[in-house]
């Protein structure tokens, strides 16, 4: 079981309120991702749940019981840190065994569990090495191994992939998702990378300045961002946000259109602009187009083989069904 409920949880460091009162429900077995720009309080929120920071006000319940004042080890949660936080003077085996040893298990039980975890994570051949002798990806796996042997009610991940190179990150992303499917345990995952959030989450919590901007499934957030912040944050490349007279035509303060919902049309289109820098990815090409009267250039996704060059004139037509409108407060107009 791993149902976590936050009830009006507030955190302040001295006079500075980092997290204004906040409510959140995390269901058993869910993969929840906290995402937001750096300094938005997502790590603090995770540490509040872990018990590494004291809650200023409010209540945290784990499986229905009040855990607000419980010490971290009593909450039955396991955490994977950004720096992995492996114990450098212990072998991989001892690292993974440490929580079990602290729990006072017998040596036989410890060995069985460590071997089991090592098998799951492909660490068999590294068990006698020290963390210093492992690569980043292997260290990451050891850290996860140390978390899973405890059989916690929920896993907490604090930006676990940010120290890995791009290729490894994609691999570990899959491995963590795979692990979640197999263990079916609640996982809370903090990241600033919206790609990680979109690909892994059952439920994304978008945070900004300590406030929850929107909670929902990745596609909910993609299809119907509740406000300008979420619209700009979710999706890659970013949604084009247009203000001014063009937005006023649609009775909105801001309109948004994703690069993939802009069609390149021959001859004429809604908007006409000049091609700036283009990014060729093979499968796709992203054009940065400056349009007369728009403050920022538009990003447009086109097929991989479109041949348009710097300075060419381009005609663009947005898909009207995919046009997002926002009012003066930045909220979505349905």
């Amino acid at each position: 079981m791993g149902r976590i409920t936050l009830d009006k949880v507030r955190k302040a460091f001295g006079d500075v309120e980092v997290i204004p009162p906040l409510d959140l429900r995390i269901e058993d077995g869910e993969f929840v991702v906290f995402v937001g720009p750096s300094g938005c309080g997502k790590s603090t929120l995770l540490r509040l749940i872990a018990g590494l920071e004291d809650v200023t006000d409010g209540e945290i319940r784990i499986d229905g019981t009040d855990a607000t004042r419980l010490s971290p080890s009593k909450r039955g949660l396991a955490m994977v840190f950004q720096s992995y936080a492996l114990y450098p003077h212990m072998s991989v085996r001892k690292n993974i065994a440490f929580p079990l040893k602290m729990a006072g298990l017998s040596q036989d039980q410890i060995d069985a569990k460590v071997d089991g975890a090592a098998k799951v994570l492909n660490l068999d051949s590294y068990l006698d090495r020290r963390p210093g002798q492992l690569s980043g990806g292997q260290r990451q796996r050891v850290a996860i191994g140390r978390a899973i042997v405890r059989e916690p009610s929920a896993f907490l991940f604090d930006e676990p992939l940010s120290n890995l190179d791009a290729a490894l990150r994609v691999g570990m992303r899959l491995e963590i998702s795979e692990l979640h499917k197999r263990l079916a345990t609640t996982m809370i995952y903090v990241t600033h990378d919206q790609v990680e959030a979109m690909t892994m989450a059952d439920k994304i919590v978008v945070l900004n300045a300590g406030r929850i901007e929107q909670v929902g499934s990745p596609l909910d957030l993609y299809r119907a961002p509740r406000n300008v912040f979420v619209a700009g944050f979710i999706g890659s490349p970013k949604m084009n946000l247009i203000t001014g007279p063009e937005a006023a035509k649609h009775n909105a303060q801001t309109i948004g259109i994703r690069p993939e919902h802009l069609a390149v049309t021959d001859g004429s289109g809604t908007w006409t602009g000049k091609v700036g820098v283009s990014e060729h990815l093979g499968s796709d090409t992203f054009f940065h187009v400056t349009v007369e009267g728009f403050e920022t250039p538009l990003t447009v996704r086109a097929g991989g083989e479109v041949s348009l060059h710097y300075g060419d004139t381009i005609h663009l037509t947005p898909d009207p069904a995919q046009l997002h409108r926002f009012d003066a407060q930045g909220l979505r107009i349905a």
């Binding site: 872990a50 010490s71 080890s73 955490m79 936080a85 114990y87 450098p88 003077h89 440490f98 929580p99």
Partner: peptide, 26 residues
């Protein structure tokens, strides 16, 4: 490393075992 100490805390090590298993070897 403070994250190491926090990890040990979450792993259920009390102040004395944290001292013995983390601080002393360090």
């Amino acid at each position: 490393d403070s994250e190491q100490m926090e990890a040990a805390e979450m792993d259920g090590a009390g102040p004395i075992s944290r001292f013995y298993h983390m601080t002393l070897p360090h």
